[in-house]
């Protein structure tokens, strides 16, 4: 599904990512761990198409096509979704209106009719319930006055409604209490199938008790220095990153 080939990228002339190579097949769940400031979130933003990063060399192949020239909205239409580490507040934009606009934008890109408002409300409320949020949530503005946990849950609701194929979860577990990690993980697990691929960026092994990864990668200084299975995450938690350096 996704092939990152020799990717070197950063801001202006400065490299943040150095020669990254990563292959992710359909249905696989990959975890990226690493010290602070090592470029994990930058990788997520570059995959999602943020335009203040420059790709200096290499390529990103998604569903057999390069996506480097696609805008963030075009990438979302192709099925790429990023759950933000720090979702931005947009006062005045209603959550339900925002999500219906997003769902309809993606439907339109696939030549599908817009979803009926009544059907959308029903669907939205179902997802709210699944992730443990009250229906009053639909009256609030996007991320405005949300607690840290509410923001992360709302990201997962967006994922469930937009139905993407490649999901980048940028520290979805940070700011969540133990119960919330379980609820959010259950939502993610319910969404997993052989056609969906995941990249989870995290600092902690805790969420991996609920989300069983296929691969764990360690990123240091903008490059992937080690890859392994779930046991690598356990080892990192015990030993830290020094032994890899």
């Amino acid at each position: 599904m996704l092939k990152i080939k020799n990717l070197t990228a950063g801001i202006d002339d400065k490299n943040i990512l150095n020669n990254i190579n990563l292959n992710i097949n359909s249905g696989e769940f990959h975890v990226i761990m690493g010290t602070n400031g090592t470029g994990k979130s930058t990788l997520g933003h570059i995959l999602a198409g943020k335009d203040n990063y420059n790709v200096h060399s290499g390529d990103i192949i998604y569903k057999d096509k390069s996506i480097l020239d696609l805008s963030p909205d075009e990438r979302a239409h192709e099925g790429i979704f990023m759950s933000f580490q720090y979702p931005v507040s947009i006062p005045g934009v209603n959550t339900m209106h925002f999500l219906r606009t997003a769902v309809n934008s993606i439907r339109k890109s696939k030549n599908l009719d817009e979803i009926e408002p009544g059907d959308f409300i029903k669907l939205f409320k179902e997802k709210l319930e699944l992730i443990g949020l009250k229906s009053e949530f639909s009256k609030r503005s996007v991320n405005d006055g949300f607690s840290g946990g509410e923001k992360k849950r709302f990201e997962i609701i967006q994922m469930l409604l937009l139905n993407p194929d490649l999901i980048i979860l940028d520290e979805t577990d940070s700011g969540l209490d133990i119960d919330a990690i379980r609820i959010v993980s259950n939502g993610i697990n319910a969404f997993r199938n052989k056609n969906k691929s995941f990249i989870l960026i995290t600092h902690y092994n805790r969420i991996l008790n609920y989300l069983k990864p296929d691969f764990v990668h360690v990123m240091l200084n903008g490059t992937i220095v080690k890859s392994g299975g779930k046991e690598l995450a356990v080892e990192l938690e015990e030993k830290g990153y020094e032994w890899i350096k």
Partner: peptide, 19 residues
């Protein structure tokens, strides 16, 4: 943020201005 959810640039600006 809005564009990453599939909303085109013009519509995203529109939503922000409306808000």
């Amino acid at each position: 943020y809005l564009r990453s959810r599939g909303i085109k640039l013009d519509l995203a600006k529109q939503l922000i201005l409306n808000s």
